[in-house]
Simulated assay, not measured.
Amino acid sequence: MSHTAHIPSHRKPRRNAPKTALRAGVAGGVLSTIAVAGAAGPAQAEPVTQTLEMPTITAGLSTAVAESAQATQQVAQDLQTQAQEDAAAATAAKTAKKAKAEAVRKAEAKKKAEAAAKAKAEAAERASRTAARTTLSASSGSSAGTGVASASSSSSSSSSSATGSAASVIAFVKAQVGDAYVSGGTGPNSWDCSGLVQAAFRSVGVDLPRVSQAQSTAGTQVSLSNLQPGDILYWGGTGSAYHVGVYVGGGQFVGAQNSSTGVVQRPLSYDPPSGAVRVL
């Protein structure tokens, strides 16, 4: 017997062929499965990647946000426009109110200025009459006094002898005694001197010029010593008279004197005239 026959072998026992084949088949199947799984893995992962529609969701959200921002901006613009319109309306109303107040102020100022000018004109007229009377008194002296005295001495007969148109003129001017004097007045309740004379003669169908200067040359010049009821008396020069009245007989005349006295009946000595004209 060999000495080596009893020495155990360290070599692994050989496996039999069927088991080895089986194991090889199992291992190959596992490896195939792994390979298939590995190959199928990307194919299965790809749909997941493709089905994530984040860009589409993000685009829709961006559109909604943009539309919301645009709507908000439009509301802001509308509010701003409305605020501007309200401010413009308030400014226009303020401007209109200011313009109205200014117009009222100007109207009041104009009215006051007209009143002041009228008062000044009346004062100037009174002063002019006073100066003219002083001049006439100094220049005419006794001749005017003689004429007035003659007219006064024949007053009763002259007054009673007024008939026809002259009587109507006298009745007209006497009916206005007590009315107010207003520069430029032509009636029916306020007059200036020439307006009263013109209206009196118009009542009998005689048209006279409107102003005293022209009325002092409208008829035939007559002496103050030969006056008749209905004659026109004037103060100042012929053609430049500043005042007129109507002789009513009895040494009296009626005239719209000034704003203080109005229409009055006075004796010739109250304010001696400088001349007279006869129209009737």
Rank of each mutant, 00 (worst) to 15 (best):
T163R: 11
S152T: 11
E122R: 03
K112P: 00
T134S: 10
A119L: 14
D179K: 13
V173A: 03
G145Q: 13
A90G: 13
S154Q: 13
G141M: 10
A162E: 05
A83M: 08
E122D: 15
R133C: 02
T146C: 00
T134I: 07
A90V: 09
T130A: 12
E114M: 10
S161V: 01
R105M: 13
A167L: 11
T163Q: 10
K111C: 05
V148S: 08
V104I: 14
V148P: 06
A144H: 00
S168C: 03
G147D: 02
S156D: 14
G178E: 08
A138C: 06
Q176W: 07
A119R: 13
A149Y: 04
A101P: 03
A99N: 11
E122N: 12
E125R: 09
A124H: 02
A109D: 15
D86T: 14
A123E: 09
A124L: 04
K112Q: 12
E102Q: 12
G147W: 01
A151N: 06
R133M: 08
A171R: 08
G147N: 02
K106Y: 03
A180I: 00
A175S: 15
A138Q: 13
K97I: 05
S159C: 01
G141L: 09
S139K: 15
A132W: 02
D179A: 11
S152K: 09
A92P: 00
K100V: 14
K174I: 01
T130D: 09
A99R: 07
A88T: 06
A83Q: 14
S154A: 15
